[in-house]
Design a protein around this nucleic acid. Structure first.
Length: 527
RNA sequence: GCGGGUGUAGCUUAGUGGUAAAGCUCCAGCCUUCCAAGCUGGCUAUGAGGGUUCGAUUCCCUUCACCCGCUCCA
């Protein structure tokens, strides 16, 4: 039997498993490296015929769970969420207001000797005392270094001065910031972990936003940015939506779309790429509401979002909710939780799939200050109640979600011809079913084509006539098609077809005219 | 950005300073009444550029991509 021959060796490590997933994605048309005929381009990926179906399915289920059939709120009433599709390029002031341009891009310093990298503002320098100058190095430390370690290093490099140790003569109170030191002095600075001075490079800024130029003539006057997140498009349209849609706080605005970040180092397949897709919802609520406080909405959305991913099949051990520590929290956030998935390349750790953040009124306030447009909301029930809404933001990675679904679905099974299958939930499988005439003769293809034409009106289905049935089942297993309907002689005689279920390979016969209903039942709403 | 590794067909692998090999996939056909069977035939590769050489896939340099570690991830 060829099954053993074809079955891939059992994955030994998560790295091997990941390699096999990437190979399957390419082989079957889920995901390709972008521009691969030109040698590729770092950080970009193309979604093939099956990848785009899978991604669209996840996107559509998210949209349904947010905009079309949003959940029932804590008060028992359905919550209100509207959609939006804002431009990828906006006035560059948007990104100044959001903090993406300017303050955000921390200059970095590399040490040529130790190959370590530091944030420039985390390095503090203690200049060499004047009596020793021109002979000894200035000493650089990472901020937070213990005073005794600093003195130890000072004594080592500078020795005693007038019989005193550095602890006796040198105050540690006012270190110099590296950024305040002129470049020509760098040759005399000893890096925090270096043994010889002069190993630190000039601080270099990393701006994660992609720049572009508007108009045919390139100049610095018409610089613009590709959006680094979809969220800002929502904030800048807050007034438009309130004024046009009859929505009332609390309500949400949802958006799905591409975002771009010039990552220092794209890694791990589509997990960290420079062009990716987000599914973000901004929930606007009244900070003074005593019945349902922003904190209660925050808790509500945390639960909803975790349910979403679990409903799609991301199982208990592979997914978790992690609260950000104080050190990770941006200053304006009153709390952030990440929903994380155990990807093969993070195993035994986890990687972020979605962040749920209580952002207070920070974003709307920033845009109010920069645009001079009031972002205040006036409560229609109580015009004296004016406020800038607080925001709860569930921000999910669509393309990261696709990767998690692929990793979760990848199932090794040496007992079947393909050796592996993708165990997608029927609702997200790129193909819901394949229609397979048992042979390419007689009435089989005719009846199969008839069934195919009927089903494709409602479902993404494949009609596959060529080659023997085992090969075709195997191919469908590899792309995660949950059901195969096979037409044989008995179909001609009594109008029944065989249903072959992907996970169990079990078969049963059902009437051909009940196939659509069968599929409908299996795929029905999961969220 | 730094260090290490890898790069031969769609996939998995072989091999050589002198015409690049195989299995599977894929395609065309035959056969076939349920799991990649069998038969016949076919397409497709040395990541890119440069150098050394009579001749480079092999040696050297550069570059690109991917993997691992560090770093980064507002």
């Amino acid at each position: 039997m060829t099954a053993e021959k074809l079955a891939p060796a059992a994955p030994q490590t998560p790295q091997d498993r990941m390699k096999e997933i990437v190979a399957l994605c390419k082989r079957r048309g889920f995901i390709f490296g972008a521009s691969d005929i030109y040698g590729g381009i770092n950080g970009f990926w193309d979604y093939g015929p099956l990848g785009v179906e899978l991604k669209n399915n996840l996107r559509d289920l998210w949209w349904k769970s947010m905009v079309l059939t949003p959940p029932i709120g804590p008060d028992g009433e359905p919550v209100e969420i509207v959609g939006l599709d804002s431009a990828i390029i906006q006035n560059p002031k948007v990104w100044v207001a959001s903090g993406h341009v300017g303050g955000f891009s921390d200059p970095m310093v590399d040490c040529k000797e130790t190959k370590l990298r530091y944030r420039a503002d985390h390095i503090m320098v203690y200049p060499v005392p004047e009596v020793l100058e021109d002979q000894e190095p200035h000493l650089a430390f990472v901020s937070g270094t213990a005073p005794e370690d600093i003195h130890k290093r000072m004594d080592k490099y500078w020795g005693k001065i007038n019989g005193q140790t550095s602890k006796e003569y040198y105050s540690l109170e006012n270190p110099l910031s590296l950024e305040k030191i002129v470049l020509t002095e760098y040759t005399k600075i000893l890096g925090p972990d270096a043994k010889k001075p002069g190993s630190l490079t000039e601080p270099r800024a990393f701006n994660l936003l992609f720049e572009t130029k508007i108009g045919a003539v390139a100049s610095d006057d018409n610089i613009a940015y590709l959006r680094g997140e979809t969220a800002q498009g929502i904030f800048i349209n807050f007034k438009n939506v309130v004024d046009s849609s009859r929505v009332r706080v609390p309500f949400g605005i949802a958006q799905v779309g591409k975002a771009f970040r010039n990552e220092v180092n794209p890694r791990n397949f589509i997990f960290r790429s420079r062009e990716f897709e987000q599914m973000e919802m901004e929930w606007f609520c009244d900070p003074n509401d005593k019945k349902i406080t922003p904190q209660m909405w925050f808790d509500f959305w945390k639960v909803q979002r975790q349910k979403f991913w679990e409903a799609l099949g991301l199982s208990g051990d592979n997914i978790l909710m992690r609260e950000h520590g104080q050190d990770e929290l941006v200053f304006y956030s009153k709390g952030t939780f990440d929903i994380e998935y155990k990807f093969p390349f993070t195993d035994p750790g986890f990687g972020e799939l979605e962040g749920i953040a209580y952002r207070t009124d920070y974003d709307l306030t920033q845009h109010q200050e920069h645009s001079k447009v009031k972002m205040e909301y006036i409560d229609p029930m109580d015009p004296k109640n004016k406020f800038i809404p607080h925001v709860i933001e569930p921000a999910a990675g669509l393309t990261r979600g696709v990767l998690a679904l692929l990793c979760e679905a990848y199932t090794v099974d040496p007992s079947r011809p393909s050796g592996v299958y993708l165990n997608f939930h029927p609702a997200i499988a790129p193909k819901k079913a394949a229609i397979l005439p048992l042979t390419a003769k007689d009435q089989h293809p005719v009846l199969a084509t008839k069934l195919y034409l009927e089903l494709r009106e409602e479902f993404a289905v494949d009609l596959d006539i060529k080659q023997n049935i085992g090969k075709r089942y195997a191919r469908q297993d590899e792309i995660g098609t949950p059901f195969c309907f096979t037409i044989d002689d008995q179909t001609v005689a009594d109008g029944t077809v065989t249903v072959r279920e992907r996970n169990t390979m079990a078969q049963e016969r059902i009437p051909m005219d009940k196939v659509a209903e069968y599929l409908r039942t299996k795929i029905k709403r999961v969220i």
